[in-house]
């Protein structure tokens, strides 16, 4: 009976979605003429190169046009990380063990992880430093760096990252983001206004404050994701 209701619900949801999207032609241009700037997408495509000299339009939207939204997004990530820690926090009772993983990982994984870990960090830094030129950015680069730390957690059972260091990196990066925003206010424009000179297209130093903000976001996301992994892996078990 319950199954029948669930199947009915799935059929209804699927039919509504399919009916809606069958009226949207796949691959059809919905931005209008780009030069006319009738839609918001056309505006972004038309103005990003001239006004901001940023090659990656998605980065320009995320950091410049919707910079305040990104600040909120980073805050949500921070709240998720700290909420996770506060939900999982528990004082250790007598006779409790600290570490769940008892077996060492294989020699192959340990040596390989040690070898590849710096390369992963460099790749992550590359991705967030070049966020305004190539596909990538702070969130992606931070996730890559956190995946490097996950590899180390998997390879070495006593590998720990200090929570103090993570908190400091996270706080400094967050303060950098907000102070870039306040810099815009001080110089007479709006919050998170792009106040620096934009430079030439496809230079590493171009796009004004966009690389600065994305580097801050990269450090913040990397620290937060590593903190989440550390909290999830090292919770105390009852014994």
């Amino acid at each position: 009976m319950k199954r029948a209701f669930i199947l009915l619900l799935l059929v209804v949801v699927g039919w509504v979605l399919a009916d809606t999207f069958s009226q949207i032609n796949f691959g059809e241009s919905r931005m209008g003429d780009i030069k006319q700037q009738e839609t918001v997408g056309a505006y972004y495509l038309n103005n990003t190169v001239e006004k901001l000299s940023v090659a990656n339009v998605v980065t320009a939207i995320v950091v410049n046009y919707r910079g305040f939204d990104t600040l909120g997004e980073v805050t949500v990530l921070f709240l998720a990380a700290s909420g996770l820690a506060s939900i999982l926090y528990r004082r250790k009772k007598r006779g409790e063990h600290d570490v769940m993983i008892l077996k060492n990982s294989s020699q192959l994984l340990q040596t390989g992880a040690k070898l590849i870990f710096p390369a992963i960090l460099v790749l992550g830094a590359y991705v967030f430093i070049h966020g305004h030129l190539t596909p990538g950015g702070g969130f992606q680069g931070g996730a890559i760096i956190a995946s490097g730390f996950l590899l180390m957690f998997m390879a070495y059972k006593d590998y720990h990252v200090s929570h103090n260091v993570l908190t400091w990196v996270e706080s400094v990066a967050g303060i950098l983001f907000v102070s870039v925003g306040i810099w815009g206010l001080i110089s007479g424009a709006t919050f998170l206004e792009n106040v620096l000179g934009t430079g030439t297209l496809n230079d590493l130093i171009s796009g004004g404050v966009i690389p600065l903000i994305y580097i801050a976001v990269g450090f913040k996301v990397a620290a937060e994701l590593t903190g989440v992994l550390e909290t999830l892996l090292n919770f105390k078990t009852e014994k």
């Binding site: 241009s29 990656n56 190539t134 496809n202």
Partner: peptide, 14 residues
């Protein structure tokens, strides 16, 4: 999929 345009490139300028 809704944002895709046939024959369109990624929105990254060079």
């Amino acid at each position: 999929a809704v944002g895709f345009i046939k024959g369109g490139t990624a929105p990254i300028f060079s």
